[in-house]
């Protein structure tokens, strides 16, 4: 009970309506993009392989951008923090290109 008395004076501030509706809007965008991915997966013809892959990867990066910038709040951090996180990921881009290329080379000599 002592604990309750100690903390009961903390007064919650009123809800930030603009912020909350923005968060729900972003959730709606994320779900919509996922839905669009499903539609593309089943309506675009099978032989448009490269086209489909580019669309899916592009939409994935749109979703990732929303999650990282708004949900994880990175967009509102200092520039230095944003770049400290974003720049090292260049290595991943390089490695994807290098190793998928390498994989195709392996497949050609198999």
């Amino acid at each position: 009970m002592a604990l309750l008395e100690e903390t009961s004076h903390v007064q919650a501030k009123p809800a930030n309506k603009a912020e909350i509706s923005k968060l729900w809007k972003i959730a709606g965008i994320l779900l919509l993009i996922t839905l669009v991915e499903f539609v593309f997966a089943f309506t675009l013809p099978e032989h448009w392989k490269l086209m489909k892959i580019s669309i899916f990867v592009g939409l994935t990066f749109v979703k990732a951008f929303y999650i990282v910038s708004e949900f994880m709040h990175l967009k509102h951090e200092t520039k230095l923090l944003v770049w400290s996180i974003a720049l090292p990921l260049i290595f991943v881009v390089w490695m994807v290109i290098a190793l998928v290329y390498e994989g195709e080379a392996i497949s050609s000599v198999r």
Binding site: L99, V100, I106, S107
Partner: peptide
Amino acid sequence: ITYGLLRSSHP
């Protein structure tokens, strides 16, 4: 990326 490498090295 391992997935990408192994997938692209398979027919």
